[in-house]
Design a protein around this nucleic acid. Structure first.
Lengths: 215, 215
DNA sequence: ACTTGTCCTGTCATGCCGTCAGCTTACCGA
DNA sequence: TCGGTAAGCTGACGGCATGACAGGACAAGT
């Protein structure tokens, strides 16, 4: 289904080609971490990878195209975030643990990929469907699981029927994503990581179960 | 305090100068709404304003500098967001109304300024202190008020002492900002505005008071 | 009309973008 | 071993954005 990796002009990439392609992607990732997105130039990425701009254009249509590729890679790993929610219990003490682990896992993932996620976020906010799709792919893995959790609790009568499961899950995940994206900001401002996490977990718990946690 | 408006080379701008400067800012704002940040070029802004690139550089060091100016303008208006929280009641039915109005006001403000806020968000996430400061200026007006509200409730013994007021307020505001930034995304996906707002209000209420709302 | 200071633009050097033709390298079958 | 073929890379080029400057246009006061 994925087919082979192809160059822009249609050739199939061999071993060597894939290597340089990957090197370009790696260097692009580094550049994104170290300088503003607006200032990342093809020529810099190429230089950093020890090759020429022309080579870059052989594998990617432009910087944006390469970023999409990078984001795609990350999204695959992001699918694993589902496991932070699915199959977990949202009752009693276990619910608190579930909340904490979800927050932990989420913040960690975001911290590891903050540079690319920033750009994906921007692209999605600007209305670019390709970026939006990738963002969804990552967030949905968690959102859907959370939505199911809420619906299940509703079925048992433990949560008000009025609550829209999807909206609630979506809002919580958006919160996590946003806070994760500005983690550095929070700490610079004076809120410590140590008190940030429990509060996020508390909000998640409140949002899903509608009750204060039992610790 | 603000002093006079000055050109890059130090001259004070007169009436006519201020007009073209403002026109450039307006056009920049439009461009930001209609095309990706990365693709906004000085020459396009200048053309749209019916002037030349050289004129642009007389008033702003670069695109980023002009965006900062635009953001500064918006931040002034954003200070008014405080009134959505300060002096409101967080007890009983009134608390629900306060929550709803806060969400309403916030989403509305964000929708009106989404293009610039996107860029400010990006700049802040990338670690640019100037953008970060502006973001804080806007969010703090709400965050501080919310923090006070939580502390007050804590003093009355209505909210657990363990809760970090600042972290809670910060997380809620981050959530609002994030959801606001992806409003279009939510609707495209299938969550309607009508069910999004009550759920956000519910989360705000839960976060601040720790209780389910009385409607 | 002349001066003064503000305001705008033509022009130019510089540097990045994106493309192409052409060169080198690796692989493969005869 | 020897082409043949496709993959892989780059130098070079026209085109366009950037950013600096000097000089011209304009308004207001004298």
């Amino acid at each position: 289904m994925t087919g082979q990796v192809r160059t822009v002009d249609g050739r199939v990439a061999g071993r060597r080609g894939q290597a340089t392609r990957q090197k370009l992607l790696d260097c692009l990732g580094e550049m994104l971490s170290s300088s503003p997105y607006r200032d990342v130039k093809v020529i810099d990425v190429a230089r950093k990878a020890g090759t020429s701009p022309a080579t870059f254009y052989q594998y990617f249509p432009d910087v944006e195209g390469a970023v999409l590729e990078l984001a795609e890679e990350m999204a695959k790993e992001g699918a694993g975030l589902t496991e932070l929610v699915s199959g977990r219990s949202w009752v009693g003490k276990a619910a608190w643990q579930t909340s904490e682990e979800l927050v932990d896992g989420f913040l960690d993932f975001w911290r590891r990929h903050d540079a690319i996620l920033r750009v994906v976020d921007l692209g999605a906010a600007e209305g670019d469907k390709r970026f939006y799709k990738i963002r969804m792919k990552i967030l949905n893995s968690v959102t859907n699981s959370l939505t199911d959790a809420v619906k299940e609790l509703q079925a048992k009568g433990k949560v008000d029927k009025e609550v829209s499961a999807a909206a609630m899950a979506g809002s919580l995940v958006a919160m996590l994503a946003s806070v994760a994206g500005h983690q550095k900001g929070f700490t610079t401002w004076g809120v410590k990581q140590a008190e940030l996490k429990p509060n996020l977990a508390l909000l998640v718990h409140l949002g899903i179960t509608g009750k204060k946690p039992v610790r």
